[in-house]
Design a protein around this nucleic acid. Structure first.
Length: 855
RNA sequence: GCCGAGAUGGCGGAAUUGGUAGACGCAGCGGACUCAAAAUCCGCCGCCGCAAGGCGUGAGGGUUCGAGUCCCUCUCUCGGCACCA
């Protein structure tokens, strides 16, 4: 046995062993309980970042832990390989996205292997491979047949210079990222998936997910946003024709307080009014500039202009002015909203700004309505009753809504309606590097689906985008085809699918047997019946809504097509926190900000160890410390996992990641913390070396009880997925062992330490397990459980409090009754001192913990 | 703006879910070993106070024998907002 800890050699040997024994290649085995452990697959951006290392270490700890406890564990890996960054790289380097992507995959796969993750590489997939995306296309056609997929117009960011659609990320301060041109909102046709048809089930089934964090379920529920309200119309006349302006509201009880109606810039009424009103036309044009992002719309200044048109209030018959508002979006609901300034905060501000009347129609007893400023109770629907509302006066929220809905219905002008905030999923992207939408455009037959037997529609892999639109539009060999219906020459659709489509079902594809994959005549096979649902899904909190919701929806569609049997794809979810690092920067002479990597900088500390400044190592000039933030290229605060692995080994990287903070919290990078992890593993190795040389003595200490107590704690924490305290328990075990290396139970204790540590640091524990002769393969060793006999004790310590303040401790026999404990407590010198001769009013005893004497 | 989460020593974090606040580690300080350094090992380490003791979990209030943990108000930080993945 080597005296020195040599991670490089140890890790290579352990990985070779796992490969040779096919330790992580699994098959369906009905005799064993299964455990499907899945980490969100990476986008192949070039190399792994620390977020990946953290994500996959968490997964691997769980996978190895379950394997040692007898589960048949599936842990697969693949590549979310389509997406915008490949096109950006192509623009920069003039390399086809396909080549860039495949090169990245090859490099990142090596990195994953060097970290020792127990992955079944036989099941690897990449979403940019035709054999995978064929099934995106196939399911899309099925959805078309069932009416779940359909075509309508969508609003996109349009760069007028590059003549191309921009992603939200490519819009910076309202301008195109490459051209700097003011971005316009533009309507173009696109395909949608009717996720709203599943809104009710997606909401209700959140209750079937006890293994999901409450906050994620809450975010999803709020995103789906079920609301009960009233859809109703304001009648009006246009060019002599009777028309209706529809709106939706959850506050029908305030309908008598409507003093205006606001419509979107794209609304037909606005368009009509603009024809004879140049000022309005200019305003509408202005509204069309700017991004389509909701956050921008919500924070921008609310502006409006009257159209000069009026509609009729459906209940009072009064004339209500119609305004165009920049905050009303055509894509949401009806593209028009009623304005009730007295009881809606946004309408209140709008009315104040433009001098519109504010009419109070809700009163809360004891509160005085004032036009001075908005007060929160104006929007109250619990305590409020209707006033100034004619026949509805005195009704509460529920009564008023019922009465008003009934009256509107009688007039044929409205009805109660359940509405969702959730919108249908637009999947068309005007981009090259994605899954082609399998549609053919024929001059005489229209949009014709590609016949199933012609799938997949293969994306040519040699295009190099230049930023000026989708290069597929210039590929005659891709575009030219014949219409499946009439056989005449036709053109292929060049839009590709949103990459969220690719990631909505990959977890099911991993379950497919190799033979099915080979033939590729089915999207999924019987493997899903055994492996699905995923027992533990792990990924970033940033996916809490979209990816997870789309995957849930896609699963339900597959279920309704009879492809799978499960309702929900992910039984348990762990949302891991981000990896942060220190940020150093300074102002440049030009007024910009220059960032410095943490290893270019030296920290200055005061006597207490507080950071008081930082200087550049190169020339000693001062830089500003900007706290911590997510690792990013632009801030130069990323840490390359590869350098870390090469310097310390995979086990150190894994151990630090697990130890530094609990999985769900953010993790702050610390070079000295990594050193600490390395130091610990060196001590583990050194202790193993020492233990191998020496003979055990007979002088038993408290070591055994201590180790088993720590084991109990570690198992409890492991079940809670709190790996930082599991790592800490390992450190405590080693501290205890180092204090009593000659204890007769030292070997037993070390074997427990190795097994508890092995999911986190699998290589070093694999090597030591063999060196010390505990067995052939620690992966096959049973997970340790604490022994009652080792934990037993005769006496225990109870904390002594007087009036809730800690004053000392008493020792009592285990199982002592209340009287005995109380007597011991009252007799103790600390109690005597702090009771100061006063009698005890009450003695609170918490068994096994404390005694509190109240005087 | 809306939805969600968080705040504990110089730092990362722990606290068996209402019962000894600061486990474990990092940094710092002191010492041993060394020609020296690194590595390693030992000790100290919330704040105030000579001490007895007091104070202390973002701020303010409340419930309780007892609050980091529960309730109310506020501040700040982070994640998401539908074409980044």
């Amino acid at each position: 046995m080597q005296e020195k800890y040599l991670p490089t050699a140890i890790e290579a040997a352990a990985q070779a062993h796992w490969n040779a024994t096919r330790a992580f290649n699994v098959a369906v085995d009905p005799a064993k309980p299964k455990y499907y452990c899945l980490s969100m697959f990476p986008y192949p951006s070039g190399k792994l970042h620390m977020g990946h290392v953290r994500n996959y270490t968490i997964g691997d700890v769980l996978a190895r832990w379950h394997k040692m406890r007898g589960y048949n564990v599936l842990q697969p890996m693949g590549w979310d390989a389509f997406g915008l960054p490949a096109e950006n790289a192509a623009i920069q380097n003039k390399v086809p996205p396909a080549k860039w992507t495949y090169d990245n995959i090859a490099y990142m796969k090596k990195q994953l292997q060097s970290l020792g993750f127990g992955l079944d590489w036989d099941r690897e997939l990449a979403t940019c491979r035709p054999e995978y995306y064929k099934w995106n296309q196939w399911l899309f056609l099925k959805m078309l047949e069932k009416g779940i997929a359909y075509k309508k117009t969508q609003i996109v960011n349009w760069d007028p210079v590059d003549q191309t659609v921009l992603a939200n990320e490519q819009v910076i301060d309202g301008r195109g990222w490459r051209t700097g041109a003011l971005v316009e909102r533009r309507e173009i046709p696109g395909y949608y998936l009717a996720i709203t048809k599943y809104a009710d089930e997606l909401l209700a089934d959140l209750e079937k997910l006890p293994g999901w964090p409450e906050r994620v379920k809450l975010m999803q529920a709020n995103w789906i946003g079920r609301s009960e309200g009233v859809r109703f119309a304001f009648p009006y006349e246009l060019d002599g024709k009777a028309e209706k302006l529809w709106v939706y509201t959850t506050r029908a009880d305030t309908i008598m307080g409507v003093t205006f109606v606001a419509v979107a810039a794209e609304h037909p009424l606005a368009t009509h009014a603009a024809k004879s009103n140049p000022q309005l036309a200019a305003f509408i044009e202005e509204c069309k500039h700017g991004s389509v992002m909701e956050a921008d719309l919500a924070t921008m200044e609310k502006k409006g202009l009257p159209t000069g048109l009026f509609v009729t209030h459906p209940l009072t018959g009064e004339k209500v002015p119609v305004w165009v508002g920049n905050y009303v979006l055509m894509g949401y609901g009806e593209g028009a909203v009623m304005g009730v300034p007295a009881h809606d905060e946004r309408d209140f501000a709008f009315a104040k700004k433009y001098g519109l009347p504010i009419k109070q129609v809700i009163a809360v007893p004891g509160q005085r309505f004032s036009l001075e400023a908005w007060q929160d109770w104006y929007a109250d629907k619990e305590k409020g009753v209707c006033v100034h509302s004619g026949k509805y006066d005195g009704l509460n929220y529920q009564q008023a809504v019922e009465a008003i809905a009934a009256d509107l219905a009688a007039l044929g002008l409205g009805e109660k309606k359940v509405q969702f905030r959730l919108r249908d999923w637009g999947i068309s992207r005007q981009r090259y590097w994605g899954c082609p939408i399998p549609i053919i455009h024929c001059a005489s037959c229209g949009d014709v689906p590609v016949p199933e037997e012609d799938l997949p529609v293969v994306l040519p892999e040699d295009c190099v985008p230049d930023g000026s639109g989708n290069p597929l539009n210039r590929r005659e060999d891709f575009l030219a085809c014949t219409c499946p219906k009439c056989g005449r020459p036709a053109r292929r659709e060049t839009d590709t699918m949103d990459t969220f489509v690719d990631s909505s079902w990959y977890y099911a594809r991993y379950c497919v047997a190799p033979a099915t994959r080979e033939k590729n005549d089915r999207m999924v096979d019987e493997g899903t019946a055994y492996w699905m649902p995923v027992d533990q899904y792990i990924g970033g909190i940033e996916h809490a809504i979209l990816h997870l919701l789309y995957s849930r929806f896609w699963s339900k569609v597959m279920r309704d097509l009879g492809l799978v049997a499960y309702d929900e794809p992910f039984a348990n979810l762990l949302t891991q926190g981000m990896v942060l690092n220190h940020i150093f920067s300074r102002r440049t002479e030009k007024g910009g900000i220059e960032y410095f990597a943490p290893d270019e900088v030296e920290l200055k500390r005061n006597e207490a160890g507080q950071i008081v400044g930082a200087t550049l190592k190169a020339d000693g000039s001062p830089v500003d410390y900007g706290g911590v933030g997510t690792m990013s290229k632009s801030k130069k605060n990323g840490v390359d996992p590869q350098a870390l692995i090469e310097k310390y080994g995979a086990d150190t990287a894994r151990f630090f990641m697990m130890f530094a903070s609990p999985p769900e919290q953010t993790l702050e990078w610390s070079d000295s913390g990594v050193e600490g992890a390395y130091r610990f593993l060196k001590r583990v190795w050194a202790f193993g070396y020492q233990l191998k040389q020496q003979q055990a003595s007979t002088g038993a200490s408290g070591l055994r009880r201590e180790i088993h107590l720590l084991l109990k704690q570690a198992n409890y924490d492991m079940a809670k997925l709190q790996f930082n305290t599991v790592a800490s328990a390992c450190m405590k075990m080693l501290n205890a062992l180092e204090k009593a290396p000659a204890d007769p139970h030292a070997r037993e204790g070390f074997s427990i330490l190795l097994r508890v540590l092995s999911p986190i640091a699998p290589h070093i524990t694999h090597a030591l397990w063999i060196e010390l002769g505990f067995g052939e393969d620690i992966l096959k060793a049973p997970w340790p459980e604490p022994l009652e006999e080792a934990l037993a004790q005769e006496e225990q310590e109870l904390v002594l409090q007087v009036n809730g303040k800690l004053r000392g401790a008493i020792r009592v026999k285990v199982g002592a009754d209340r009287t005995a404990i109380e007597a011991a407590a009252l007799a103790s010198p600390e109690a005597q001192k702090f009771m100061a001769g006063q009698p005890a009013k009450k003695v609170v005893i918490v068994p096994g913990r404390l005694v509190n004497i109240v005087v």
